[in-house]
């Protein structure tokens, strides 16, 4: 399994886009830590990058890479290799490369300047979101035969998770403000990995007190081992389910 992955990684890390992405993250992280007098503020600004830029880059890059690798995948399929192995290797290679870019660009600065709870939760969230949005990219790519359609649909997905979803949550909160919504809000946020990651980081940053009694509940929950387990499992589900679905489709698909 790892053989093919290794070559995919080898190919991608020499990709100019990935290099530019790594450099961008590195420059932004370092300058944020240099400019902001307080590490918490830098982490908050980095959080915006991790929640917005990182999913966008991951999903678009993975999609484009998939379509560019189409003929290569075809060639692999003519070899005595199982389909699951091929698509999974492609996924693993893409995801690993993006992870490496993230860990180099954001991980190292964070570990140098802010290796605390909030920094680590930022890295955790970033890694999860990279894997999740690569997963989603593969799902969208195997579903859409056409590159333009594929890229269109992943942009839409990104738009949905980054922007539209929270708008919908806001609408729900206002339309049902007469009901006790604490649990439902929590559930709703868990259904969007970007929101879940954001809350996970924010609670580590002591924002919870702003949320009153509910905030304290959330903080207790997310701060505990159960909370970490909950967050991790939801994140893992977000990684695994789209990927499994993509593999299923790929296995039945005509190339």
């Amino acid at each position: 399994m790892m053989k093919l992955t290794r070559y995919v990684v080898y190919d991608i890390i020499r990709n100019k886009v990935i290099m530019a992405y790594t450099l961008f993250l590195l420059v932004v992280s370092l300058s944020l830590f240099q400019v902001e007098e307080n590490q918490g503020k830098a982490i908050l600004s980095l959080m915006n990058i991790v929640l917005i830029v990182l999913p966008l880059v991951s999903i678009v890059f993975a999609t484009i890479h998939y379509y560019n690798s189409y003929e290569f995948i075809e060639l692999m399929l003519s070899q005595p290799l199982g389909r699951t192995r091929i698509i999974f290797s492609e996924y693993a290679g893409t995801a690993l490369s993006l992870l490496m870019a993230f860990l180099l660009g954001v991980g190292i600065p964070v570990l140098i300047y802010s290796p605390d709870d909030s920094g680590l939760s930022l890295l955790f969230t970033g890694c999860c979101l990279t894997l999740i949005f690569t997963s989603l990219a593969f799902l969208a790519s195997v579903k859409a035969r056409d590159k333009a359609r594929g890229i269109g649909s992943v942009l839409l997905l990104w738009f949905y998770f980054a922007l539209i979803y929270d708008g919908l949550v806001l609408l729900i909160l206002f339309n049902f403000s007469d009901y006790p919504l604490e649990k439902i809000t929590l559930l709703l946020t868990a259904l969007n990995p970007v929101d879940l990651g954001r809350i996970f980081i924010m609670l580590k940053m002591d924002i919870s007190a702003l949320m009153g009694y509910t905030g304290a509940l959330y903080k207790d929950f997310f701060g505990s081992g159960t909370g970490l387990l909950f967050t991790s499992s939801i994140m893992v589900l977000w990684i695994v389910l789209p990927l499994l679905w993509a593999i299923r489709i790929f296995n039945k698909k005509d190339i």
Binding site: L44, D166, G167, V169, L173, I207
Partner: peptide
């Protein structure tokens, strides 16, 4: 203003949507 009216909306703090 939103969270004055609906404290649950605090869960959306620093979300991209809210910033926009």
């Amino acid at each position: 203003m939103i969270i004055e009216e609906n404290p649950n909306a605090l869960l959306l703090m620093r979300s991209f949507t809210v910033q926009l």
